[in-house]
């Protein structure tokens, strides 16, 4: 398994330092929570790790490969998938189409195959089965045919998770996956995260609710003012004085 890490990341926006010499090494698999007060730079870190934002300095590595400067789509193809703080979906197409869109390596996404391949390739039949499987895992199978725009907020969040899983990525970066979601759905998501961990994947999620973090996360990194101030097992880290100070003043 390749090691996902970054070192010396620095980023400022118009004079405001959001990340300052940020370095972190993630485990090769497991459930990792990233917490910190608002403005700590968590989403900015996520954006840099996935290529949507360019750091002013520092490097990101997957194994030996330097990811700095790669387009987001390239990083995604290396097996790093993500969700967004605001829900991003294609509301104009159906629920299952969104999941099908997420499947990697589709032959008929290439121009010539799209034009000249007659009939339906076996891989698409397979993809359809797999898509239904992911929808089942998030409890949306019976809604597979409706437009994604017609789902409720919580259902859409579950759909984004299904899409993320459907990319077959090894590393999943989730930005507040349970925010604004009904407690029952939140539990569902937590079980999904455990399932992903059992498959040997690495799940990194940004979270505000420390109770959830205690229940689900195996590792915890605490960020404040653009750098990591603590890392380790949740129960242990959350007892530390510098952490409680940052959270509770």
């Amino acid at each position: 398994m390749k090691n996902f890490r970054c070192n010396g990341l620095t980023k400022s926006f118009g004079g405001v330092h959001v990340l300052t010499d940020m370095s972190v090494e993630f485990p090769t698999s497991g459930i990792v929570a990233l917490v910190g007060p608002n403005g700590a730079g968590k989403t900015t870190l996520l954006n840099i790790l996935t290529g949507f934002l360019r750091a002013d300095a520092g490097r990101v590595f997957l194994g030996n490969r330097d990811l700095i400067g790669l387009s987001p789509y390239r990083i995604s193809r290396l097996g790093i998938a993500r969700t967004f703080q605001d829900i991003r979906l294609i509301t104009a197409i159906s629920v299952i189409e969104n999941v099908l869109l997420s499947r990697p390596n589709q032959t008929r996404e290439h121009l010539l195959s799209a034009l000249f391949y007659f009939g339906v390739p076996a891989e698409e039949v397979q993809n359809h089965e797999t898509a239904l499987k992911f929808l089942r895992a998030v409890g949306l199978e019976e809604h597979s045919g409706i437009l994604a725009g017609e789902l409720s907020y919580g259902q859409q969040k579950l759909l984004t998770l299904a899409c993320c899983m459907a990319t077959e990525a090894h590393i999943l970066l989730l930005d507040e996956p349970m925010a604004g979601v009904h407690p029952k759905a939140a539990l569902q998501i937590q079980n999904l995260l455990r399932g992903l961990r059992n498959e040997g994947k690495l799940v990194i999620f940004i979270e505000h609710d420390l109770a959830v973090v205690r229940q689900v996360a195996e590792y915890l990194f605490v960020m404040d003012a653009g750098r990591i101030i603590a890392g380790g097992r949740p129960t242990e880290v959350l007892e530390r004085p510098e952490v409680t100070e940052v959270y509770f003043g």
């Binding site: 789509y73 967004f84 979906l89």
Partner: peptide, 14 residues
């Protein structure tokens, strides 16, 4: 169609 509605989402999907 995905690009039309949300290009960033499409990029995140590779």
């Amino acid at each position: 169609h995905a690009i039309r509605e949300d290009e960033i989402f499409a990029q995140a999907l590779g």
